[in-house]
Simulated assay, not measured.
Amino acid sequence: MPRPLWTGSLSFGLVNVPVQLVSATRDRDVRFHQVRSGTGERIEMRRVVADSDDEVAWDEMARGWETEDGEIVVLTEDDFAGAAPERTRTVDIDLFVDLDEIDPIFFNHPYWLLPAGEGDGPSRAYRLLRDVMAKADQVAIGRIVMRAKEHLVAVREQHGLLSLTTMRFADEIRDPHDTGAIPEGEASEPTEEEVADAVALIEEMTADWEPERYQDSHRARLLGLIEEKRRSGEVRIPEPEPEPEPQRASKDLLAALEESLAKARGEKKVPGTRSPAKRGAVGSTGAKPRSRAKRS
């Protein structure tokens, strides 16, 4: 079992459930050392003062905040204790909401909440909360203090366990209107034919979510490249794929949609023919709706 990152209790009204937190994900990135090119000698990083190159020991390290007029306010680790949240070993539940009410953009890192403690009491309390939350099909919103920082969290039942996902606060989400990139105006408005074909294409590509179908192909290629370099001492560089024509996305949008729709249906596109999807209203393309798995 993974090493617990946090141990405490889940507070649900007057009920306290002993739990421990473990990460629900694992880091599979390929890690490298920084070395000198040609010799493979490892490079050692040192902390030095920018203006004098004097080396700085760990016990001299501090953090600085630069004000608008360029002044550096130096803060030590002891100073940060004044802003630290009250240390608590409890996940305090504030309210329950429907999962569909939460935009996925708010979710951050997932964890498993495992039952903790000995005897039947903690396990019974855990199973009670798990079963009730599964039956209610709702998400508990609360707060947790972890690594000296307070986090907003969402707790729900998943696959027989309680999961806890840290969340972003509302002011951390950039307003999409601030990007200035929302398409507006008649010039960028799609035609009815384009919308009908796009809807039909989505329906043809709709299927149940099977995460096992997707693998980290970049990681596999990178590990293969490392092995090839180890065996032969060199790496074959593939020819780059040609860049797509920049105007195709807008100029030939309808043609690209029809070609994609025909490919999704396994049909051979006949030049000059029209897609049957555009003859009906949007959404009435004749494609059979696929069954969708219930959102968990």
Rank of each mutant, 00 (worst) to 15 (best):
R3S: 13
W6L: 00
V17W: 03
V17F: 07
Q20N: 05
V22H: 00
T25I: 06
R28T: 13
R28V: 12
F32R: 03
S37I: 14
E44H: 13
M45W: 09
D51Y: 06
D53V: 08
V56R: 06
D59L: 08
A62N: 13
G64L: 07
F80R: 10
A83Q: 12
F96Q: 11
V97S: 13
G117I: 01
R124H: 12
Y126T: 07
R130V: 03
V132Q: 07
A134T: 08
G142M: 02
R143W: 03
K149A: 10
G160D: 02
L164P: 00
T166F: 01
M167K: 01
D171T: 09
E172H: 03
I173E: 04
I173R: 03
D175P: 02
I182F: 07
E189V: 11
E194L: 02
I202G: 08
M205V: 09
E212G: 10
Y214A: 13
Q215R: 13
S217T: 15
A220I: 06
R221A: 11
L223E: 08
E228A: 13
K229I: 08
S232P: 08
E243K: 11
Q247L: 13
S250Y: 14
L254A: 06
A255D: 14
A255N: 08
S260E: 09
S260D: 12
S260N: 14
A262H: 08
K268G: 11
S275Q: 00
P276K: 06
R279N: 11
A281Y: 10
V282H: 10
T285Y: 06
